[in-house]
């Protein structure tokens, strides 16, 4: 294999972003368009000013051409994130967030920050959330075991970040552990 080591063990953040861009978001179109067939499905028709659901990649594309406003998902608000952050810091387990929240929030904030109320506050909340959750996944590392590890509600970007290390160290641990069946087999 001539792929670099980092690409062999996991996908890149950009690839995750690409996958997340398939999710549907609501937009308020500024142009009208008939129902149009794409490979992933048919979207539309767009009739301003009524809302419409399209994949994120299409919303980004339209937004950059100033042909729509993106309606931020209901979890991308100060209230919701504040509540999750306080839960995150007060409870030992990960709080429940959309699986691809990191990718979607970043893309929406990058491209359509003028459509998101309090965008700066949300950015800093997301950063705090990320840091609180990182501290928890570090604790998860301490409990690592050769056979299993349970960190419920971990999100795709976070899983991707810790995957290479966890896979490698669990592999190594399973080498070092002597299973009961091996013990019986040894002379």
């Amino acid at each position: 294999m001539s792929l670099p080591q980092s690409l062999r063990v996991s996908v890149t953040p950009l690839e995750l972003e690409l996958i997340a861009c398939e999710q549907l978001v609501e937009i308020v179109p500024l142009i009208s368009m008939e129902k149009t067939a794409f490979i992933s499905g048919a979207y539309g028709p767009l009739r301003p000013p009524s809302k419409s659901k399209v994949p994120l990649w299409m919303a980004i594309n339209l937004k950059l051409k100033k042909k729509c406003h993106i309606v931020p998902p209901e979890w991308l608000t100060v209230d919701f994130l504040q509540e999750r952050l306080s839960r995150e810091t007060s409870q030992p387990q990960f709080s429940k967030l959309p699986f691809r929240f990191a990718e979607i929030s970043k893309v929406v904030l990058d491209v359509a920050s003028d459509d998101v109320p309090n965008a700066d506050k949300i950015r800093s909340l997301l950063k705090d959330l990320r840091e609180a959750r990182q501290a928890k996944s570090r604790e998860g590392l301490q409990q690592i075991d050769h056979s299993e590890l349970s960190l419920p509600n971990l999100c795709s970007m976070e899983i991707n970040e810790i995957r290479p290390v966890f896979v490698q160290s669990m592999g190594l641990l399973s080498q070092l552990v002597r299973e009961p069946e091996n013990r019986a087999g040894d002379v």
Binding site: S6, K106, N160
Partner: peptide
């Protein structure tokens, strides 16, 4: 090996978080 793996993946994720790809 683990050190290199961890460093690489953290770097990659950090680059993604910090980049603005408009």
């Amino acid at each position: 090996e683990l050190f290199a793996l961890a460093q690489e993946s953290v770097k990659m994720t950090k680059r993604w978080y910090e980049g603005n790809d408009r």
